[in-house]
Design a protein around this nucleic acid. Structure first.
Lengths: 302, 302
DNA sequence: CTGGTACTGTAATGAGGATTACGGTTCTGG
DNA sequence: CCAGAACCGTAATCCTCATTACAGTACCAG
């Protein structure tokens, strides 16, 4: 099953698998053990119990240790794994390891000691709930509609962030740039931006980021874009920028939390969700582009 | 070797939080690996990275497989574990297994993918845990030290992000700019950046962002900055950019999650935590600056 | 009571893996 | 340009561990 993608260990496993697609929840090995329990003999059942008691580590050790834990002999362990359908103990251990790898991430570092030594614990909690709330606030339908628009290669995409949200706009620009062509950021300077706005055509898409301390220039840009027939999408906060009045799609994130500063983290979460959505939908096309980028990249940078 | 490197800066060991002096968790094996990174050779570091990339399963397999994954020879793996202080590979594997057993419960059964109702629910959960893990990975001590440096107005601050992490660098720049003067982003173009590097003086602080697909130009920039006597701080991922070898402060975030794309969200979380830390420490000074900015702003933008 | 069967542990064996010795290569300092 | 050292991989060696053959035991049917 799991194809050994040896090269990927360090390199980003870039869009390798259509992870979004094939989500088959196979029963775990533990499930198999439980199911087979009935058809096992006395000593073998002891082996199964020992395995489940300390799953999966018991299975990762040597046969001898496994046997000791289960209070049975080594051959019994071997017969046990054979009954489970494995070719040998090595095979069994490999399956266990692969299952573990597929599992959710393993914590590399224990959370820092309780309470006092984590001075930012409160803030950390706030960040987490901000992400949760932001993801809850976004309507899947809106994300889907925006995805449709962004897949369409005939449309040119323009992005603009504000003083604070600029990084979020750039982050989205990064993803779009990797997946399609004709993506550009609006300039910060107004003269230059005027030139760029003149390029706008109907069917083009303008994506704006505007949160409180709403920026007048962003609102003006939205209005002009709308006049020129472009589709306008807006990322904003719960109070909603005035851009919302001309926007075709509005996606809101939580930006406020108990801190003197607003947070960008909710917007980042939504941007990445959107990126994943696009990726899932148009992967076949995107892959070609991605490989081209990689080829050019290695040529450019020795 | 004429260069005396301050390896102590990298070692995360003593979570000796000045405040509590309380009990701290024993560092995990992953922490030990991370700490020793600096004193490892090239091939050994590849081994370390491979281990961290698929932790802890990579360490549970045979030496041969480990070596293959790391793209090094078997003896290198042996030398690697020897440097970590283990008597042999068996000893190493036993330690890994014991650590795993001490860890929290392992899910015996996978949660069932209960439906299309929330297509992004899995991804949302991943984002949340990515934030949590990132905050857990950062040592409060390192954040504290970086905070001290950034409060010092005599030091000029330079920032640089990579293709992907650029938004994180800009986000930090935003916060710093609001709280103090003499903050600038390095240029993306190398000619211009050379000019800027020439401006560097001792005591200045260079903050770099470099995650996998590590960028050669970022590493070069770090080396040059270090040569010129600047303090170098690095935001990176768990596998650690080579910048870590010259960096005085290393802060890691989680960037990988079950998606074709890496995530910026952990870095954003850490940046905002750092911003809060600075804010908390120097608010009296910062407030004056903030009001000045507000005044100027309203004059500039009617 | 007896032969048979299913089950389990002991002990021997062979393979695969950990370990070590060594030689080639690269890097560093003089 | 050279000497030395550090580093890394190849290949040989040793040994642990998985595997298997076999014998002992309990249980059941006739």
């Amino acid at each position: 099953m799991t194809e050994t993608r040896d090269t990927a260990s360090i390199q980003p496993d870039i869009p390798g698998d259509p992870s979004a697609g094939g989500r088959t929840d196979k029963p775990t090995l533990a499930d198999r053990v439980t199911a087979s329990m009935a058809s096992l003999s006395e000593a073998e059942r002891r082996a199964a119990r020992a395995l489940l008691a300390r799953y999966p580590t018991t299975g990762m050790e040597t046969v001898a240790l496994f046997a000791e834990r289960a209070k049975v002999s080594a051959p019994t362990i071997l017969r046990f794994v054979a009954k489970l359908g494995f070719a040998g103990y090595a095979d069994f251990r490999r399956a266990l390891r692969e299952e573990m790898e597929a599992q959710a991430e393993y914590p590399l570092t224990r959370p820092h000691a309780d309470g006092k030594s984590a001075p930012f614990a409160d803030f950390a909690r706030s960040l987490v709930t901000t992400v949760e709330n932001s993801l809850a606030m976004a309507s899947p339908a809106d994300i889907g509609r925006l995805t449709d628009l962004l897949i369409d290669e005939r449309r040119e995409i323009f992005l603009l962030g504000g003083d604070f949200t600029d990084p979020a706009a750039r982050h989205l620009e990064f993803h779009l740039r990797k997946m399609r062509s004709r993506v550009r950021l609006f300039s910060a300077g107004l003269s230059r931006r005027a030139d760029e706005l003149a390029d706008l055509r109907k069917r083009d898409v303008v994506i704006l980021f505007d949160i409180r301390r709403y920026q007048q220039d962003t609102i003006r840009t939205a209005e002009i874009a709308k006049e020129r027939g472009a589709v306008v999408a807006l990322f904003t906060d719960r109070w909603m920028s005035d851009v919302a009045q001309v926007a075709d799609i509005v996606i809101r994130a939580q930006v406020d939390l108990p801190s003197p500063w607003d947070s960008l983290i909710g917007l980042i979460a939504l941007v990445e969700t959107l990126a994943l959505s696009i990726d899932a939908r148009q992967w076949p096309i995107g892959r070609a582009r991605f490989e081209t980028i990689e080829a050019v990249r290695t040529k450019l940078m020795p």
